[in-house]
Design a protein around this nucleic acid. Structure first.
Length: 619
RNA sequence: CGGGGAGUAGCGCAGCCCGGUAGCGCACCAGCUUUGGGAGCUGGCGGUCGGGGGUUCAAAUCCCCCCUCCCCGACCA
């Protein structure tokens, strides 16, 4: 099951959330954090200032034609409905409607960060390059950074992220184990000169990001901080109305349990991920593993190994066709450089080798897939005809699936020949058994064994362990009880706030336009006056004005279409803009003393008493 | 960065081959008609035709250089 958003914003308390209790229950050296108040959200703070707006005043021009450059629905609709306008490649202006939605997302993030005990700061967008040189990331980020010079020719960059600034800030202020843990966050514009900005707000060069950084004394303390953020992220994306999964990210160094990407499920997503429809397992394709395959084949009577000619057929498909067998009955032997020696990874012919899995299986050895230059350096290797029994191989890693077949077709270790009837243990040996195939849909889940699915997603958030990389480079150290100095353990937590707006638009729209979840909608109610032409027209307008005033008095955010345009234009614009509830005050209804209501998402219509419509948001 | 395409009114486009008055739809303004699912008629406003150079009596159109944008492949929130 996917985590599914409710329409109404829920409030969470520390006590109700088991993971909080767990996180807070972890003993702390000082004992102080237990007393520290986590979260200070109060009902007194309005999420976003309530507002009412007449469309005759609103800075909005909807477009009848699709913008020519929009490839995806979120981009197309956000431009057409007047939420954003492109100013340059990957750089957008946010118009009043868009600004309100962005603020709603921001506010949800802010509430959940505060609730999780993080403190909001605001760090500079313009940052000295010198800081980036200290961490070495001026090189690592390289052309992705927007760089500039001041009048003295000192180098600066526009912040693509803020580990350096926040680390040096904390290093200045804090230096004791008594100060920790600490989590700081900001919601601020980020700049990345992407090679190819595209998909509107989904991959922009200027984007609004929430970035948080945790500082802890050790790994255990870090895990508690990490867990609080991880839980908060679930609440943020649920409240935003996204269908999402927290996915194990591929990260060789960091370790999967401390790196999660939050993927909003969407066909236009740029990342594939594997997930289990039956349990909570989800992982990046590179990080994904599968469960046990079938049992090892019984030792059937297999004739001896027999060479067959396969001239000019180095590929699996060609050999399989030539021998009239399925590709799955062949074995692929893929060459790797393992600490400078030849290693082979062996998988069935219909599967792909997962490079990262091979590397993980052979740790701590350095593993690298052979490239053209490696084959050029080793002309004795019969590329395309290597078998798992190749004499020069220092190590053979095979997928457990290789155990399942009684006999295989393998490379014969000389060009233009393969061999059939190859048996594990008889004709070749395996040094390491490991799950090294790339997961494909239908593979068993490593947790529950049910078939896995693969989907595309938009990465809307990422939480991970930074270790001490930045605290060492920028000298963010603390002194422990014994007076010894240690670098702080850091975590990093990002949410693409402007990207969330696009991801939600991607999930919540139909052929008529946007359809916002209540939590993100720019307004709660779209009031439409349809006065008609007759004698009652003035009266209808007066009634609509009265309803408008009454909604404002209830502090309901209302967008009032008081324009003198045809009803069709008003209805079409209302559907395009996508406010969750539409109210029509028209000649027809006023005559009968009713207001017509339409729920944008479902199309459900009903009527409310004109004299006292109550709260039209509740159905 | 490599490969493909495009820059003409705020938006969507035609005109370019074959050089000669810059056009259509939407939007905007005015008037009349219309008024429950993107109305009609009439009249208007709005353009350094991406920029620079060249050829020519004459360039949106032909030639050269540059810029920008979009689409397809390696990065990230």
């Amino acid at each position: 099951m996917y985590a599914r958003a409710g329409l109404s914003a829920r409030s969470f308390s520390v006590k109700e959330t088991p993971t909080f209790a767990r996180a807070l229950g972890i003993p702390h050296p000082t004992g102080r954090p237990g007393e520290r108040e986590i979260g200070n959200r109060s009902a007194a703070r309005p999420p976003v200032a309530s507002a009412a707006m007449r469309m005759t005043s609103l800075f909005l021009r909807t477009l009848r034609d699709d913008p020519a450059d929009a490839e995806v629905e979120s981009h197309r609709l956000l431009v057409r409905a007047g939420y954003v306008r492109r100013i340059s490649a990957g750089i957008y202006s946010w118009l009043p409607l868009g600004q309100r939605v962005l603020r709603k997302v921001e506010q949800i993030v802010r509430e959940e960060m505060d609730e999780a005990g993080a403190q909001e700061v605001l760090l500079p967008i313009i940052q000295p390059l010198e800081l980036w040189e200290r961490s070495g990331r001026d090189q690592a980020y390289g052309p992705l950074m927007f760089k500039l010079l001041d009048r003295k020719e000192t180098g600066y960059c526009l912040s693509p992220t803020a580990e350096e600034v926040v680390s040096s800030l904390v290093a200045q202020e804090y230096g004791s184990y008594r100060d920790l843990p600490l989590t700081l966050y900001q919601i601020n514009w980020k700049y990345r000169d992407e090679l190819r900005p595209r998909f509107g707000l989904l991959r922009a060069r200027e984007f609004l990001m929430k970035d948080a950084y945790s500082f802890d004394v050790d790994v255990d303390a870090f895990r508690a901080s990490y867990q609080r953020m991880y839980d908060a992220y679930h609440r943020v994306f649920s409240r935003s109305g996204l269908t999402f999964r927290a996915v194990e990210a591929a990260s060789g160094e960091m370790g999967g349990s401390e790196s999660r990407e939050f993927m909003a499920v969407a066909a236009v997503g740029e990342d594939d991920f594997v997930w289990c429809p039956s349990c909570e397992y989800a992982a990046n394709v590179e990080a994904a593993r599968r469960g046990e395959g079938g049992p090892a084949a019984a030792g059937a009577d297999v004739p001896p190994l027999e060479e067959v000619g396969t001239p000019d057929l180095p590929g699996i498909a060609g050999v399989a066709a030539h021998l009239r067998v399925e590709p799955g009955t062949l074995l692929k032997s893929i060459a790797f450089d393992v600490d400078g020696k030849l290693g082979l990874a062996v998988v069935p012919g219909d599967r792909e080798v997962n490079e990262l899995a091979v590397a993980a299986a052979l740790e701590p050895k350095q593993v690298r897939l052979y490239g053209d230059e490696d084959f050029a350096a080793h002309p004795e290797l019969p590329k395309g005809y290597i078998g798992p029994n190749y004499q020069g191989a220092s190590v053979v890693v095979a997928d457990p699936a290789v155990r399942a077949g009684p006999a295989w077709v393998i490379g014969a270790n000389r060009t233009d020949y393969h061999a059939r009837n190859a048996m594990v243990g008889r004709d070749f040996d395996v040094d390491v058994w490991a799950d090294v195939v790339t997961v494909t849909p239908g593979d068993p889940c490593p947790r529950c064994g049910m078939p896995l699915s693969i989907d595309r997603g938009i990465e809307v958030g990422h939480v991970f362990n930074l270790g001490t990389k930045f605290s060492e480079a920028l000298e963010a150290r603390y002194t422990d009880e014994k007076g010894e100095q240690h670098p702080m353990m850091m975590g990093c937590y990002g949410i693409g706030v402007s990207r969330v707006v696009a991801a939600v638009a991607e999930e919540h729209h139909d052929e008529h336009g946007l359809s916002w979840p209540a939590a993100l909608a720019p307004y709660d109610v779209h009031l439409i006056a349809v006065p008609g032409r007759g004698e009652q027209a003035a009266n209808v307008v007066a009634e609509a004005d009265r309803v408008y005033a009454s909604l404002r008095a209830q502090r309901i955010d209302v967008l009032y279409d008081d324009r003198e345009v045809s009803p069709g234009v008003k209805f079409a614009d209302a559907d395009l803009v996508g406010v969750p509830v539409q109210l029509v005050v028209g000649a027809k209804g006023v005559g009968r003393g009713v207001i017509e209501r339409k729920v944008r998402a479902t199309g459900a219509r009903d009527e409310l008493p004109l004299a006292d419509p109550g709260d039209p948001r509740s159905t």
